[in-house]
Amino acid sequence: MRIPCPSCGERGHEEFAYLGDASLVRPDPTAPDAEARFADYVYLRDNPAGALRELWYHAAGCHAWLVVTRDTRTHEISGVEPAKAAALRRQEAG
């Protein structure tokens, strides 16, 4: 699989480390049910067939975390953006 890093260009997947679902948001530790939320956050994963936004780390390249939109059935990558930009956007959205 080839992943187009927004900074480095297209590279083989062996340069990247995989983390997983990028839709997960670190829960508020002060919430009354924080423990249950963290348990979900750390352990529970969906396994969708189709497009999934997921986190990859360009470990052998620019050290950027990326949000890669990948079809889990075909490995087709339809979008990549720096995770930092996505995270800032998420924060702005509240």
Partner: peptide
């Protein structure tokens, strides 16, 4: 060493970009 670096980058770029 490498694992910690990756973790710190994750915290910085994804959890607390501010």
């Amino acid at each position: 060493a490498a694992k910690v670096m990756q973790h710190l980058e994750f915290c910085h770029q994804w959890l607390w970009p501010e």
